[in-house]
């Protein structure tokens, strides 16, 4: 509760700033519309106003401020416009409708989840291999670390087009990009986790004459779980970004990335903002689910707080 007060005030301040910013951002088009509707505006004529500062125009025409919050294609939509659009496209539309954000969100979410599962499972398997084989460790690990410094997302368009040319379409190409993005964080985190038992703990296992299999299942695996969850949280956020970016280059018509793209083609700013908030909500929900699983798992293992 002590945390909630300041957070709410900061969020309220951000919303208030947003409303204030709408006025100068949209004042030019608002004045043009008002003039066309016969309302008196100070300097007349759009050509005169084009070069004038937005703040000066806003201060000189306080009576059109209301219009800046209610335009069809504003440069910056007001918060309530985005909220209304979100509400209309999620709750009021049927989920099979092409305009429903839940429909588009599901397209993106399914690719994200498939990719995330593939990437995480492959990542854990590679990490197990790396921990067991010195040669694999020395060969693969430097490349796994180096690959994190590379903007991998740049190859997304190519993967989509190449798979498209050999007849693979729809969910799978996006899922591959998602898998690729979540793969390396999981490998690096899992290797760190499997190596986290101290020399003393490993010696203890040897004292009990545990086989390397037993050491793995009874010591290394449980010890790696906190590390695994930390990288899963990074991985699922990266998967979502991968699925969204995977929808951009081919001009896909379905999915949240496609909503962003078509919005920017047709200047539908309200649609862009609502798609953006939908991705934010989706990302927050996914990370929260993984964090919840983490808490439950760690608690059952007896290491949770």
């Amino acid at each position: 509760m002590r945390m909630l007060g300041p957070v709410l005030i900061v969020v309220a301040a951000i919303v208030a700033l947003w409303y204030v910013a709408c006025v100068p951002m949209n004042i030019h088009t608002a004045l043009t519309d008002a003039e066309r509707a016969g309302v008196a505006v100070s300097p007349e004529g759009a050509a005169v106003r084009r070069d004038m500062g937005a703040v000066r125009l806003a201060l000189g025409n306080t009576h059109v401020w209301g219009d800046t919050f209610a335009q069809d294609k504003p440069r910056l939509p007001a918060p309530h416009q985005v909220a209304v659009e979100l509400w209309e496209t999620t709750v009021e539309k049927k989920i099979t409708s092409k305009r429903s954000l839940i429909f588009h969100g599901w397209i993106t979410l399914s690719a994200t989840l498939v990719g995330f599962v593939i990437g995480s499972v492959a990542g854990v398997m590679l990490a197990v291999g790396i921990v067991h084989s010195r040669a694999m460790d020395m060969s693969v690990m430097p490349w796994a670390i180096a690959s994190q410094t590379i903007p991998i997302l740049a190859i997304a368009p190519m993967i989509i087009v190449v798979l498209n040319s050999i007849g693979v379409q729809g969910l799978l190409p996006k899922a591959i990009i998602s898998a690729y993005l979540s793969f390396f964080p999981v490998v690096v985190g899992m290797v760190k986790g499997l190596r986290s038992p101290s020399a003393m703990q490993l010696d203890q296992m040897r004292t009990w004459s545990a086989s390397s299999n037993q050491t793995f299942w009874k010591l290394r695996m449980p010890a790696s779980v906190p590390y695994l969850f930390a990288s899963l949280k990074i991985g699922i956020a990266a998967s979502l970004v991968g699925a969204i970016v995977g929808e951009l280059p081919t001009g896909a018509v379905r999915g949240l990335g496609a909503r962003l793209l078509t919005g920017s083609y047709y200047g539908q700013t309200i649609q862009i903002w609502s798609a953006l908030f939908a991705t934010a909500i989706l990302a927050a929900a996914l990370v929260a689910i993984v964090a919840g699983l983490e808490r439950v798992t760690l608690k059952r293992m007896g290491v949770g707080r």
């Binding site: 900061v10 440069r75 949280k233 956020a237 200047g267 700013t269 991705t279």
Partner: peptide, 26 residues
Amino acid sequence: LRRGLMPVGNFVAALPIVGTAPILVM
């Protein structure tokens, strides 16, 4: 500010901010 802004900052740092690209390009 630390108690108010940091949770918001932590939250936003986890979001797919790449999505703001079309708006900023506009």
